[in-house]
Simulated assay, not measured.
Amino acid sequence: MTVRPDDPAPNATALNDAAPAWNDPAPNDPAPNPHATEAQVEAARKDTKLAQVLYHDWEAETYDDKWSISYDQRCIDYARGRFDGAVGPAPLPYGRALELGCGTGFFLLNLMQGGIAKSGSVTDLSPGMVKVALRNAQHLGLDVDGRVADAETIPYEDNTFDLVVGHAVLHHIPDVELSLKECLRVLKPGGRFVFAGEPTTVGNFYARWLGRITWKATTTVTKLPTLAGWRRPQQELDESSRAAALEAVVDLHTFDPSELEALSRSAGAVEVKATTEEFAAALWGWPVRTFEAAVPEEKLGMRYRLTMYRAWLRLSWLDENILRRIVPRQFFYNAMITGVKPGATTE
């Protein structure tokens, strides 16, 4: 899974409710469209970038809740762990960082809080996501600006950033190599890019099947009269099914780690390295997350969430300390890739 579920730590709902009106995206950027019409959804099936906007605008205000995203030590440690796992020891902090496909700001904002970068810029094709990311940054007191932007045509000058990051974004981009070239263009010489949370081809196969089986089993069993209280309203289930249909349009790629390295080198990067993570943790996490999406939230108490989270931590330890030595890297679910723009080292 791309972001850790099943933890009772605070999420961004309070941030979103408490934040004042502030720092909106650039004046010429489009406004969010959280309620797409049926005609727009139908058109999006044939237009992947429209699908990206509609799907992510629809999810923007509830995304942090859905994936248990927070901006406290739990997710700071998670984001920093992904960065350190991809890069290894590095001089910190970077100066200015850019996040592509920022979503609600999960990766960059937590990396900044973890001491990775001093200031940042968030970009996303979805106006709704940029709006929420800036709101979260404002609440956290972070020096962040934002733009609605296509990752294939990044709207910043050459040699602007010391670091470019992204989490679960490359698999949404039609031309990944072009996007990586754009990253290198806006990086200063010696600057680094780090992308995490990208699905491997093998991992995506078993994760999708686990998710489908769990969804089918849960929504079927909860039709029984004795379990009716565990069934979400049909309207919500139908909406989730429509969202899943668009998700199939917005998820464009899976990656073999070696192929991801080759793409990065072809784009012009040096010091390229792909790593992978989550095998047992993914086999556990996908059914858990799907089950949670299929039942009413109030049915899942604090004890359940703590139990699920602790199980995920134990399985992650197993992955890192034992299975990594046995299981080929392409069988793990998440891929991370890093590379450097040729030239002088960024200070």
Rank of each mutant, 00 (worst) to 15 (best):
A243S: 14
H139L: 06
V295N: 11
T160F: 05
E259P: 00
L134F: 03
A269T: 04
A18G: 15
F195H: 09
P10W: 06
N16F: 12
D77C: 03
L184K: 00
G120D: 06
T254D: 15
P189N: 05
A36R: 08
P225A: 13
A274K: 04
A207I: 11
Y333K: 15
L260Q: 07
A9Q: 10
L100F: 01
A244V: 06
N159G: 04
L108K: 05
A60R: 03
E152C: 05
V340G: 03
A243T: 10
E320L: 14
G190P: 09
P233Y: 12
H167W: 06
P189F: 08
P34R: 03
S126L: 05
V221L: 15
A207S: 14
N204E: 15
T48L: 02
F331C: 15
P5S: 10
L142E: 02
E320R: 15
L318M: 14
E61A: 15
S264T: 12
R45P: 01
W230I: 01
I154C: 00
A9S: 15
V41R: 13
P287E: 11
L315Y: 06
T276Q: 10
F291C: 04
R324Q: 13
W215V: 08
A151Q: 08
A90F: 14
M336P: 00
Q40P: 06
T254M: 09
K131R: 15
L170M: 14
E278L: 14
A280I: 08
F83I: 07
A311K: 05
R303E: 14
A151T: 02
E259Y: 01
L15W: 11
H35F: 12
L306M: 11
L140S: 12
S266D: 11
N11C: 14
A282H: 03
D64R: 03
W22M: 08
I76M: 04
L323Y: 10
A243H: 13
E38Y: 07
I116T: 12
S264V: 01
G81P: 15
S241E: 13
F107G: 00
G81N: 09
